[in-house]
Design a protein around this nucleic acid. Structure first.
Lengths: 187, 187
DNA sequence: GCGTGTGAAAACCTTCACAGCT
DNA sequence: AGCTGTGAAGGTTTTCACACGC
């Protein structure tokens, strides 16, 4: 398959796609294109998608529930190793085949399961304390769904997903579209 | 508050923060800093966060459930106007105080509720068909949680949130950290 | 004196365009 | 002939650094 076709499928410029792929090495054939299966294998290897990563979800509210039951993770190389909640009323409850465990067990969970990623699905007010607990337990990668800016030590990676912000970005464009419509119909 | 303090809180460079704010106008005072309350008001106005936006959630599985019950939206100016699912078995069921409605009702929902954003929380296989239905119903902004690249007409905005990709980015860094550790301990 | 607002410089990213391999 | 891989060009974003107003 040519870079032109791959780029069209991905919605990007073909030169960009070729340059990006060139960072992995020369896996294309001039005059022919790319062997998609081989390319996928190389990309997976480079991105570390060939191994399975155990994750710990903290905060089993609505979002935590959804994440615990989400099939997409397993399909993409992630295994939900444990569920944790600070609420003693929730501890012991079973969600998606896993028993909810207390925050205090984080260190042993991380050790036993060799957990690589902590997912924070708590309210914003609890997020920093949970992040501190995850880091203390040995976690070095955090995916944060709480609308809070986390402070973590050097060497710990944090990614934040803020659902409301995603929508706000859409409404910003929506507003601009509306303003543009007005100008257009007036002019 | 100075740009230095605001930048530290946001985790960015102070010059960048000042330049970004300057696009909204001159809301700071030289030698003093910014009036945070006034600044927030100006930012909210510019970003269109002063009005409430009705949203429609399509696909009431685990994620759809979580989104329907998520409090964070209301706090940030979004109102869940309707829940929609293609599964006749789910239609009529009540989630978060709203009755699930069939896909066929999308046009009337969008008209009656003046819905601005469609949220796709379906499996990947259904995502394009749902997007087409949303666009046909008059929606011009889509937030897509399905791991699928949507094709939409000019003038329709799409944002994609892929939870597995977020984790893959973390594991990529994790892998690089591990490789670096090896080199360091070997050298 | 202090901190904003902003030209200019530096860094970074994307696209062009074509030499070179199949 | 056709498509990759990549220098060079063009564009955008980030940072620097300082004139200017409080």
């Amino acid at each position: 398959m040519s870079s032109e076709e791959l780029a069209a499928a991905a919605g990007v410029n073909s030169a960009k796609l070729r340059k990006d792929l060139s960072h992995l090495g020369s896996y294309g054939t001039r005059g022919v294109g790319y062997d998609v299966a081989y390319l996928l294998h190389q990309i997976r290897r480079e991105l570390g998608l060939t191994q399975h990563w155990p994750i710990v979800i903290v905060g089993i509210g609505n979002l935590g529930h959804a994440l615990a039951n989400y099939r997409g993770f397993a399909e993409r190389g992630f295994r939900t190793a444990a569920l944790v909640d600070a609420d003693p009323g929730k501890v012991g409850e079973e969600v998606g085949g896993l028993r909810i465990r207390p925050l205090a067990e984080l260190p042993s969970i991380v050790r036993e399961q060799d957990a690589a990623i902590g997912v924070i699905a708590t309210p914003a007010a609890a997020a920093q304390a949970v992040a501190d607990a995850l880091v203390a337990a040995g976690i070095r990668s955090i995916l944060n769904f709480a609308p809070a800016a986390l402070v973590v030590p050097e060497g710990v990676s944090v990614r934040k997903v803020d659902l409301a912000v995603e929508m706000q970005i859409l409404t910003y464009y929506e507003q601009r579209k509306a303003a543009l419509d007005e100008v257009t119909s007036a002019g």
